[in-house]
Design a protein around this nucleic acid. Structure first.
Lengths: 113, 113
DNA sequence: GTCGATAGTACGGCCGCCGTTATATACCGT
DNA sequence: ACGGTATATAACGGCGGCCGTACTATCGAC
């Protein structure tokens, strides 16, 4: 699962949102780092709906325009939890590996082996 | 940065490795979850070398066969550290969002609001 | 002698993300 | 009155990165 997809699931975890709401939520959640493009969002939403990780919660007609709310399904929540663990494991593993690295501070002569 | 790429950098963080060594290291690091395909590995290695995140450490001829060792560069280590922080932030954000979710245990009637 | 592990190269395919455009309404500032 | 921004969704082409597979080649084990 890629980052945009992960963040979309994350955005939907707290409460159902419509498309544009997801864009704003992901923006906030990522501290402004990730700005979802419509192409990314609706494509991902379609795929996630196909996989059953999100479902259409309801459709509202606001001022003549359709507003479709998406909800994180129970399988979606399970998948998200699994992904969180995966990210944590990878982060920890990478940190341990970096700790084994000889370089930076050591090359200053602070440690000679 | 995608998962295979991240794990390749992680594998190279501790010490230089040749291609097949990376495949084995990623296998171990991920607890057997991620098995790198040659196409994935050598493609990623080429891209990472272009970006300067890894460099060719040395080339050895072992029993007539070339063995090319790759090393994580300092920019590569910096990029990996940044990515670790990114993963952690996302994992934490997702967990917080899931905590806001009404469902599962609550729907058992243990909490009625 | 053949199988599996080691080791690397090459190529086609495809999924998922990106950029962009189109469409439409509403509100704000100038 | 007009342009810019925000809200809201759909549809298109492009492409980066991963995957599967096949090919080559050596070595040890059975």
């Amino acid at each position: 699962m890629q980052e945009p997809t992960f963040l979309i699931l994350t955005a939907l975890a707290a409460q159902p949102l419509h498309g544009y709401g997801v864009i704003r939520a992901v923006d906030e959640l990522s501290g402004g780092e990730v700005k979802l493009r419509p192409g990314t969002l609706y494509g991902a939403l379609d795929r996630l709906a196909e996989q059953g990780l999100v479902t259409v919660d309801r459709e509202e007609a606001v001022e003549g325009r359709l507003r479709r709310y998406y909800r994180l399904s129970d399988p979606g929540a399970t998948a998200l939890k699994a992904q969180i663990e995966r990210l944590r494991r990878h982060a920890t593993a990478a940190e341990i590996q970096l700790g084994k690295r000889l370089g930076d501070a050591l090359s200053f002569g602070l440690v000679t082996r």
